[in-house]
Design a protein around this nucleic acid. Structure first.
Length: 871
RNA sequence: GGGGAAUUAGCUCAGUUGGCUAGAGCGCUUGCAUGGCAUGCAAGAGGUCACCGGUUCGACUCCGGUAUUCUCCA
């Protein structure tokens, strides 16, 4: 059975049991400060379990893209070493939201594994929660009894709280769980050691494949448990592992989930994968694993960057490069070549990759190149370090850390290169420096989040599409403290405040607590909660509140948001439909739009795009907003964003059904004419394959145009209103360059003349050709020029020239090289001993040429005589 | 968000305690050599040393700020 059949069978099986199959949520998480990536199948259903939202279907099944590389589940450095850790993996799951419970979940999981997938029953074991006295929890007898119907009792094992009781967090829904384990050992081994003794014992061949969580309790703040009114089922089965078991492979990497990629790497590099523990084979596994994580996160709109989620992607990518660079001896970009293979493999499951295959490839290629450059310069740097420390034959921890911290050169490579050169590296010192940096960062981002004070247990409704003010109540609030600044977060039962989302900034405004006005500085989303930020709390919070937004600011923002839609459509019309939104910022002043496109947008294209947008504004198209089932919206040709999670009912913003139809939760104007005017401010690149356009609309656009015109007017006036302005400026610039050149020539000429007039004044003193003079020049550099001019004319010379330059004394001294050598004359010495004191200044330079400067301009003659005296 | 670094010719980079007439390689222009090419030889053009301010007699160099980029950590 192929991997895709296994996946299909899972989904079809649960479909036949009345489940609605939903697509995977994006792997990159938005609007949740506690999570960067989806790390479990249940993430997208969290709000259902918490009761913040009601599900549209009570039975759901899916395969979810997950990534575990940060936070609690950090497996990154394990991946590739063994045969079963992954960064990105698929989690198959079936859910019941207050519908079926233990009996069905248990029966179906058994049916699927043994009848559909035909796993031998005598290799399966199940575990059931044994109870916990301290928590006052009973054994999960129900689950035990339901399992008894399918499995002999000696295969039902009891597990402790750690393995068999699942909790979402410190508080919230939780419950016992029941795992299914499979024993993959060969028969001879199974005869020797009973499989039951190896369950949950970290044996790589006796592994858990499916966890069924039965949510039946709610954990309260005081740590006590209360029964949930609606009981849920939450299951998760690691897809890669399941495939391995069904296909009877020794390792996940031997299945057809990975073999395509591995085969292609073999083809590209000429190396062979032999499934061993060698560094080379670890590399194959690292590459096959990491390319999936990299591709799917980029396809879900997360570009590699130096912060947050983007930094995690960058690290995964760099780990992959590090491996092929060192162990496959492959010194050029490799990962990007694998993208099409993967895109094709997942075309029907996760089509977002195939749809953006060129874009993802380009991003990865640039990123690889970048890091290969970093490695290159790091290697040069480490070679210098090795040369400089040949005496001690060691690299200290601080230096190794600096290589990583400042130049991005990985420690393991430093270690490797050092060892190759017979050097040692102070690993302890390195670790210490690393710890110091981590501590510093943690301290700087310390966020003290208080507990919510709950006044009223109700959801929150957004009424801001139609109202700017409303009567409401505070349902909960808390205090947060970041960087020593205290702030409060308030949640209202209904609110006109738009929370930052889809690029549109959050509203500001005021909350009027029966006379006491508190201003709202920002509004943000936390999952589906709308959180209002304030600097203080009212004296009495438990009153009626009049919530009013800053209408003016919202209006300006709304204009820019609608303009963004017009722009997006125009971009696709002019540049092509490969243009996809990669980021958007909409605030009262301007709009910023990032999109995938591979070349600079030319001035002609920009003009064309701007024309289209303005044409649509003048056409005064009415903006139609509809809430529709997602399928219907898709039929209208609505543009959805990659990496955005949509519910079953979506909000669609239409500006002429033939022009712009977009999924959007933002605020919009009534008709496009309200925008008045649209103007570009700038166009540029932000990352590989991503361009950024900034623009203004409405009154801001007009102000911008007026400002430009005003500047133009002033320039014209300054140039005495020429007929052809551009030509006049060009001429002006060319003239200036010519004049500067001429001036330089004249200066040279002047110095030459000065030099030739000074030449006859040369005096012979003790065999030395001495010229000393106070001259009139206008820069210190001219004195220098004078010396260099004269040195070609004489031998055995000593020159001293002094000048008053802008009220300051400047002196230059030049001595022929042979005099320096033979007579021990040194220019800086003369300056320090004879000159700087006189002119109240300092000076220095080379032995044969030095310069000095000082305050005293009327002692210049004395400078000359003083030098002359020592010859 | 916190830390470390970088910014010098079209490109890749040197520039050692403040004073070297700011350099190298590649590229470019011109000339010469070779039957042609690869190439070799010679000459030349090209720099507001990112920007702004400060210290100093004097700043590519030291200090502060801004911008951009790289990099590590969270």
């Amino acid at each position: 059975m192929t991997a895709s059949e296994i996946r299909r069978q899972f989904l079809e099986f649960f479909k036949s049991k009345g489940h609605h199959v939903v697509p995977s949520a994006p792997i990159v998480v938005k609007n949740d400060p506690t999570l960067l990536f989806t790390n479990a199948g249940m993430n997208q259903f969290k709000d259902y379990f918490l009761g913040n939202q009601t599900p549209a279907w009570s039975r759901v099944a899916d395969t979810q893209k997950c990534l575990r590389v940060s936070g609690k589940h950090n497996d990154l450095e394990e991946v590739g070493i063994d045969t079963y850790h992954h960064t990105m993996f698929e989690m198959l799951g079936n859910w019941s939201f207050g519908d079926y419970f233990k009996e069905e979940a248990i029966a179906w999981s058994w049916e699927l594994l043994t009848e559909v997938y035909k796993l031998p029953k005598d290799r399966l074991y199940v575990t059931v929660f044994e109870g916990d006295k301290k928590e006052n929890l009973e054994k999960d007898q129900e689950a035990y009894d339901f399992w008894k119907k399918h499995v002999p009792e000696d295969r039902i094992l009891l597990g402790n709280k750690k393995d068999n009781f699942w909790e979402m967090g410190d508080t919230g829904p939780c419950g016992p769980c029941s795992e299914i384990h499979v024993d993959c050992r060969p028969d001879e081994e199974r005869k020797l050691v009973e499989g039951a003794t190896l369950v949950n014992k970290d044996n790589p061949q006796v592994i858990e494949i499916w966890n069924n969580v039965f949510m039946q309790f709610n954990r309260l703040k005081d740590k006590s448990l209360e029964p949930l009114p609606a009981k849920h089922v939450d299951t998760g089965m690691g897809f890669e592992r399941l495939v391995r078991v069904i296909q009877g492979k020794f390792s996940n990497y031997d299945t057809d989930v990975f073999s395509g990629t591995i085969g292609y790497i073999e083809k590209l590099t000429g190396a062979k994968y032999e499934a061993s523990d060698s560094k080379k084979d670890v590399t194959f596994r690292v590459l096959a694993d990491h390319i999936r994580a990299i591709c799917f996160t980029i396809a879900d709109d997360q570009l590699p960057s130096n912060t947050g989620a983007g930094y995690v992607i960058r690290r995964i990518l760099r780990r992959a490069v590090r491996y092929y660079f060192t162990y496959l001896e492959y010194k050029k970009p490799l990962l990007h070549e694998l993208v099409p293979v993967l895109a094709q493999q997942f075309e029907t499951v996760f089509p977002e990759l195939q749809k953006q295959v060129d874009f993802v490839k380009k991003v990865i290629f640039e990123e690889e190149n970048n890091f290969l450059r970093t490695l290159d310069s790091g290697i040069r740097r480490i070679e210098d370090i090795i040369a400089a420390n040949s005496a001690t034959k060691s690299i200290d921890g601080k230096t190794a850390f600096e290589l990583l911290d400042t130049y991005g050169f990985p420690f393991d490579l430093t270690n490797l290169i050092a060892t190759e050169n017979g050097f040692s590296v102070d690993e302890k010192g390195f670790e210490a420096a690393m710890k110091e940096q981590k501590d510093r960062s943690r301290a700087a981002t310390e966020l003290d989040m208080g507990d919510w004070t709950i006044l009223e247990d109700s959801g929150t409704t957004f009424v801001g599409y139609s109202l700017d003010t409303t009567q409401t109540k505070v349902t909960k609030y808390r205090k947060i403290k970041a960087k020593g600044k205290e702030q409060y977060q308030l949640v209202l039962s209904q609110t006109p405040f738009y929370a930052e989302s889809g690029g549109q900034v959050g509203d500001t405004g005021t909350l009027d607590f029966e006379g006491e006005k508190i201003s709202v500085t920002d509004t943000k989303k936390e999952n589906d909660l709308i959180v209002h930020f304030t600097d203080k709390l009212p004296a009495t919070i438990n009153t009626t509140v009049t919530a009013t937004i800053n209408k003016d600011k919202r209006q300006q923002t709304t204009l820019n948001h609608s303009a963004t839609h017009l722009l997006h459509a125009a971009l696709r019309q002019v540049l092509g439909t490969h243009v996809a939104q990669k980021g958007s910022l909409v605030n009262p002043e301007s709009l910023r739009f990032d999109f995938s496109h591979f070349a600079k947008v030319t001035d002609e294209e920009l003009a064309q795009i701007e024309d289209i947008v303005n044409e649509k504004i003048r056409a005064n198209i009415p903006v139609v907003i509809q809430e529709l089932p997602k399928e219907e919206a898709m039929k209208l040709g609505a543009m959805a964003l990659f990496g955005e999670k949509y519910g079953d009912i979506v909000r669609v913003v239409i500006m002429d059904p033939n022009y712009s139809v977009e999924f959007c939760g933002g605020t919009h104007i009534g008709s496009t004419g309200e925008l008045g005017l649209f103007k570009f401010l700038s166009e540029g690149a932000v990352a590989a394959g991503v361009r950024r356009i900034e623009g203004v609309t409405g009154a801001h656009a007009l102000a911008y145009v007026n400002e430009q015109l005003q500047q133009l007017k002033e320039v014209k006036a300054a140039l005495k209103n020429p007929k052809e302005l551009v030509k006049a400026v060009d001429t002006l610039i060319a003239d200036k360059a010519g004049l500067e050149k001429q001036l330089e020539v004249l200066e040279q000429e002047k110095i030459k003349q000065l030099a030739s007039s000074l030449l006859p004044k040369a005096e012979k003193i003790n065999g030395i050709n001495f010229i000393g003079s106070v001259v009139s020049v206008n820069s210190a550099d001219a004195l220098k020029q004078l010396c260099f001019q004269l040195k070609t004319e004489l031998t055995d010379y000593v020159f001293v020239f002094a000048a008053n330059v802008g009220g300051k004394a400047n002196v230059a001294v030049m001595i022929a090289d042979n005099l320096v050598a033979d007579k021990g004359l040194e220019a800086p010495k003369i300056i320090k001993e004879k000159i700087s004191g006189l002119i109240k200044g300092g000076g220095g330079g080379q032995k044969s040429f030095a310069s000095a400067g000082g305050q005293e301009t009327d002692k210049l003659d004395q400078v000359i005589t003083a030098v002359k005296a020592i010859l």
